[in-house]
Design a protein around this nucleic acid. Structure first.
Length: 632
RNA sequence: GGGCCGCUAGCUCAGCUGGUAGAGCAACGCCCUUUUAAGGCGUGGGUCGAAGGUUCGAAUCCUUCGCGGCUCACCA
C-alpha cells in the first residue's frame, strides 16, 4: 500500500534527515557563518572575483550534470548561483558538517544550505560561488510550490504567505517598505520633539470612537475588558500629565466588517500636540505624508486606483460646506431647517431623511463628494453633531475644528482640536448616549474617569490619526488591505491531509453557532417535544449528527449535538448534549455503516415518534475534534 | 447579510452535452563536466472541499453545508 504523494515525500525527506544523523551530521545545526549576502556579491563582482565567501540561504533550484551541479541559493537580498564541481568540492567531513559530492543527494531544493568558495563566473557568464564546502543548515520536509507559478490560489497565498514570499521574492518589497515607512514615521515625529508611548490595548472601557469592540476577560481582576478601538483618550491623559507632544503607533481592534479596506485588527499613528489647534495638524499631516514619500520611496507621485496622486504639491484645503457646494451646487450652510436640508438631499437623489441639517451635509458629502477626492485633500469644518470630541469653531459654532484626509477617494485620517471643556464634554456625551440608545439600542460607555481628567484640566490640544494600512496601500500601490497585512485574519482550518500527517483520525470542524441558530440542550428539546410545543411546519426535517469521541477507542466517551433543519421556520436548531445509544460502545470508527445505523436508530427513536407524518432525513455522521486541542 | 465565481495530486492547471481521473512542475530510480523552466529513459502518486439526492452509472446534474475570492450593503 503506497502513501499519498505528500505523505510519501515527507517520509522520504525525514528518512534523509535520519540518514544524515546516522552519518554523524546534524540536519538542524544552530549556527552558520555567512560572510556575504547574494546581492553583495553580484553587485561587487569586480572587487570580489576570486575571493572566498560564504553564502547561506534556501536552495531554490538544483541541476545535476554528473560531475557538475548547479543550483541557486536565495537569501533575504536575492539569489546567487552555486557552481559545484566534483573535483573541487571537499569530501564529506562530519566533524565540520561538510557534505561531499558523493552525498549531495542528501540535500535538495527547499533545504537551507551554506556554501563556502570562490566567487567566479560560469561559461555562460553568471556570477556564481564555486563551493569548496557545502553544509546543510536546515532540512525541509515539505515540497515547495511549483517553481514557475508559485502559489496562485488566493487563499493559499494568505494562509501561507511565507511560501508566497519565498517563491516570489518581489512580493516581500511591499512589506519591507512598510517597515521602512514605520521607521520614517517615527523619525519624523521624534525629530519634531514627540515622545512615543505605548498606550493600553486592554481597556476597561472603549472610547474615542463608536465601533463595536472585542471583549475579553481578565482572570486576575475578575472583570471584562475591551481591546482598544482607539487610543486617543489615553494620549489625552498623557497631555494632561504634562507631556506636550506624544504619539503612539498602536493596534486598533474593531469587531466589524472585513473587506478590501477594512481589517478587524489594524494600526494607526495617533498624535496629541498641546498648545496647538487643528490648523497646525493640517501642516503636520501634509509634511508627514511628503516626508514618508520622499524618504522611503524617493518620489511623490503614486498611482492610486489607476490615477496619479501627487503628495508633493500643496494639498487642497476646503470646508465640507464648500466641497459639497462645488460638486452639487447646494449650499447646506444656507439651509435654515432640517426639512429644507432633507429636501435638498432628496433633490440630489438621496432619499434617506437625516435628523439634522448637519447630518444632511455629511450624507451629501459622503455620497457625492468623497469618491471624487483623488488628490490629497483636507476637508474641514464638520458639523458639531458628528464631532462630540472636537471643539467648535470660534466664528461658527455649528461646525467643528476638525478635518479629514482624503486621498484616492479614500478616507485616510481624522483630526481635530480636542474638546477640553469638561462640562460641555459631559453634556455632549450624555445626550449622544441617549440618542444612540434610542436609535441603535446600543449603550456606549461614558468614561467618567476621562471626564475627571478633563476637570483637572488639559491644555488646548490637537491630534491626528492616519491609518497605517491605508497609508501603506497608497504608498505601495496595493488596492487590497490583505496585501499590506502579512498575516490577515482568517478562519482556522485543518486540512484532512494535515489531520492525517499529524495523527488526527477524524475530520476537524470548528464548532460554532451561526447567528440566528437556536441552541438548546437535549433535555429542553425532549420536554418541548413532549409538550407538543415544537412541531414541524414542513413535511421534511433534516438532521445532521455531529459527534465527538473522547479518550481511547472502545473505552472513551461520546458527546455531540444534532443540527436540525425544518422544525422551526428559517432557523436551525442545535441540540447539544446528544448522547446516542448510552452505554453502547460506538468507537468502532472503521465500521462506518454500523456507526451510522446506531446513530440513525437513536435519532429516529428519539424524535421520530413525535411527528409520524414527517419525513426525517438523517445525514451522515460528522465527526468532531476539539479544535483547541489541535490548533497549530 | 445579498449577488456572482471558485475548490480535481504537494503546487499550477486540463477534464466538452453524465460513461474506467490527465498533463507539467515537484518526488523516486538510472545516464550526463557549463546548466539556469537544463535534458534523456523509466516509476510511483487522487475520498475530484463535505454530506445527501437523481441515475444502471456522478469530478460532471440537483440540494444543503464548509472554506475562499470578487462585488454590493452595513460599519469608521
Amino acid at each position: 500500500m503506497s502513501d499519498k504523494p505528500l505523505t510519501e515525500f515527507r517520509k522520504i525527506r525525514i528518512a534523509k534527515a535520519e540518514k544524515l544523523v546516522e552519518m554523524g551530521f546534524n540536519p538542524y545545526p544552530s549556527k552558520c557563518s555567512r560572510t556575504h549576502y547574494a546581492k553583495t556579491i553580484t553587485d561587487n563582482y569586480d572587487a570580489l572575483e576570486g575571493k572566498t565567501v560564504t553564502v547561506a540561504g534556501r536552495l531554490m533550484s538544483w541541476r545535476k550534470h554528473g560531475a557538475l551541479t548547479f543550483g541557486h541559493i536565495q537569501d533575504q537580498s536575492g539569489r546567487i548561483q552555486l557552481y559545484i564541481r566534483r573535483d573541487i568540492l571537499q569530501d564529506t567531513d562530519q566533524s565540520r558538517g561538510n557534505i561531499g559530492y558523493a552525498h549531495l543527494k542528501l540535500i535538495e531544493v527547499g533545504d537551507f544550505v551554506e556554501a563556502a568558495g570562490r566567487v567566479t563566473r560560469t561559461e555562460r557568464g553568471e556570477i556564481s560561488v564555486r563551493p569548496d564546502t557545502i553544509r546543510l543548515i536546515t532540512k525541509s520536509i515539505r515540497p515547495l510550490p511549483e517553481k514557475r507559478s508559485g502559489l496562485k490560489d488566493r487563499e493559499a497565498v494568505l494562509r501561507r504567505r511565507y511560501l508566497d514570499t519565498t517563491m516570489q521574492p518581489h512580493k516581500r518589497e511591499a512589506f519591507e517598505n512598510i517597515s521602512r515607512m514605520l521607521f520614517a514615521i517615527r523619525t519624523f515625529f521624534n525629530e519634531r520633539g514627540f515622545l512615543e508611548f505605548h498606550t493600553p490595548v486592554l481597556q476597561p472601557l472603549y472610547g474615542g470612537g463608536t465601533a463595536k469592540p472585542f471583549t475579553t476577560h481578565v482572570n486576575a481582576l475578575g472583570c471584562d475588558v475591551y481591546l482598544a478601538i482607539s487610543h486617543e483618550l489615553y494620549l489625552k491623559r498623557l497631555i494632561a500629565a504634562g507631556f506636550d507632544r506624544v504619539y503612539t503607533i498602536g493596534k486598533y481592534f474593531r469587531n466589524e466588517g472585513i473587506d478590501r479596506s477594512h481589517h478587524p485588527e489594524f494600526s494607526m499613528i495617533e498624535t496629541m500636540t498641546a498648545y496647538e489647534n487643528y490648523e497646525y495638524n493640517m501642516d503636520l499631516v501634509e509634511d508627514l505624508f511628503r516626508y514618508v514619500a520622499q524618504n522611503v520611496f524617493g518620489r511623490t507621485v503614486f498611482r492610486v486606483n489607476g490615477r496619479e496622486v501627487d503628495f508633493g504639491r500643496p494639498w487642497k484645503r476646503i470646508s465640507m460646506v464648500d466641497a459639497v457646494r462645488e460638486v452639487t451646487g447646494v449650499d447646506f450652510s444656507k439651509c435654515t431647517s432640517v426639512d429644507e436640508a432633507n429636501a435638498r438631499l432628496s433633490a440630489m437623489g438621496i432619499n434617506e431623511p437625516q435628523a439634522s441639517a448637519g447630518l444632511c451635509l455629511v450624507k451629501a458629502f459622503e455620497e457625492k463628494v468623497e469618491a471624487t477626492l483623488i488628490s490629497p485633500t483636507l476637508v474641514y469644518g464638520h458639523p458639531m453633531d458628528i464631532s462630540p470630541l472636537a471643539k467648535p469653531m470660534d466664528d461658527n459654532p455649528d461646525y467643528a475644528e476638525r478635518f479629514e484626509i482624503f486621498i484616492g477617494g479614500m478616507e485616510c485620517g481624522d483630526n481635530w482640536s480636542e474638546q477640553n471643556d469638561p462640562v460641555r464634554l459631559l453634556e455632549t456625551w450624555k445626550s449622544k448616549q441617549q440618542s444612540l440608545m434610542l436609535a441603535a439600542e446600543e449603550i456606549h460607555p461614558l468614561d467618567y474617569d476621562f471626564i475627571e481628567v478633563m476637570e483637572y484640566g488639559m491644555p488646548p490640544t490637537t491630534g491626528i490619526g492616519p491609518g497605517i494600512e491605508r497609508m501603506a496601500m497608497l504608498f505601495t500601490e496595493q488596492d487590497n488591505i490583505d496585501d499590506v497585512i502579512f498575516f490577515p485574519l482568517m478562519r482556522p482550518v485543518l486540512s484532512p491531509l494535515n489531520a492525517e500527517i499529524y495523527g488526527i483520525d477524524e475530520r476537524v470542524y470548528v464548532e460554532r453557532v451561526a447567528e440566528g441558530d437556536i441552541l438548546i440542550t437535549m433535555d429542553e428539546f425532549v420536554s418541548l417535544l413532549e409538550d407538543g410545543i415544537i412541531s414541524p411546519p414542513a413535511s421534511r426535517v433534516t438532521v445532521r449528527p455531529y459527534l465527538r469521541f473522547w479518550g481511547d477507542l472502545g473505552r472513551g466517551r461520546t458527546s455531540g449535538y444534532l443540527e436540525i433543519e425544518g422544525l422551526i421556520k428559517d432557523k436551525r436548531l442545535r441540540v447539544v448534549g446528544f448522547a446516542p445509544a448510552p452505554g453502547k460502545a460506538l468507537h468502532d470508527l472503521t465500521d462506518t455503516r454500523k456507526l451510522r445505523a446506531v446513530i440513525e436508530s437513536s435519532v429516529r427513536d428519539g424524535i421520530g415518534g413525535y411527528f409520524p407524518d414527517c419525513e426525517i432525513r438523517i445525514h451522515g455522521v460528522i465527526l468532531l475534534h476539539d479544535p483547541r486541542l489541535h490548533a497549530g
